[in-house]
């Protein structure tokens, strides 16, 4: 019962549950997360077997480069998420600019990673070292995913350019893939740079 003198505001209807992207994309994302997860745990098992050596090798990595790359990728994900919202508003031009900004952050990430690889290799840290073997494989496979993500973002930008072929779901799917790349990096950053 409502107390005298008070008014009840109608509650807005609950938001409809919906699958972001489509089921095929989620099968791919969940599969990728599963296989990366197995590799992350394998790394930790090898680390546990020679923790002292791994910790000593991890200290050669520059945490600030890792932090910079993380912030760059998080910012790219912010642009990507805003691009999806812009598409829903029908702001195609803004969505395109945001996707370009997302891709630019991806390229910046790759350049910083290339600099870091060059520094480590010139110091004599190669794939034959226990920790650096994992470091190069994990960051290398992640870079391949990032390159694929930039390509997929390019497809979305191309879609938005043509007024007749604009399919919002393509933007949503490509951005989902991009967020997965970001998600994987957050785990890699914690594993390689922070947990030492």
């Amino acid at each position: 019962m409502t107390a005298p003198g008070t008014t009840t505001r109608p509650r807005p209807p609950a938001r409809e549950r919906r699958l972001p992207g489509d089921a095929d994309m989620w099968v791919m994302i969940l599969g990728d997360l599963f296989f990366f997860g197995c590799y992350f745990v394998t790394y930790m098992v090898f680390r546990a077997m020679s923790a002292g050596r791994f910790t000593a090798s991890q200290r050669h990595l520059d945490i600030d480069i890792g932090v910079t790359n993380t912030v760059v990728l998080l910012t790219s994900s912010l642009f990507a998420a805003l691009a999806v919202l812009a598409v829903r508003e029908g702001a195609w031009r803004r969505a395109r600019r945001l996707l370009w900004a997302t891709g630019a952050c991806g390229v910046l990430f790759a350049l910083i990673k290339a600099y870091e690889w060059h520094t480590e290799i010139s110091r004599g840290h190669t794939i034959h070292d226990g920790f650096f073997g994992f470091y190069f494989v994990l960051t290398g496979v992640h870079l391949v995913h990032l390159a694929l993500g930039v390509l997929v973002l390019g497809v979305a930008v191309r879609e938005l350019r043509s007024p007749r072929g604009r399919r919002p779901t393509i933007v949503e799917q490509s951005v989902l893939f991009w967020h997965m790349v970001d998600l994987l990096w957050v785990v890699i950053f914690a594993l390689l740079y922070l947990m030492r």
Binding site: R15, E16, R17, R18, L19, P20, S77, L78, A80, A81, V84, L176, H179, M180, D182, L183, V186
Partner: peptide, 12 residues
């Protein structure tokens, strides 16, 4: 990232 960026908070 999963909940806010990937919008899983509104997912099934």
């Amino acid at each position: 990232i999963i909940r806010c960026f990937m919008e899983v908070r509104h997912a099934p």
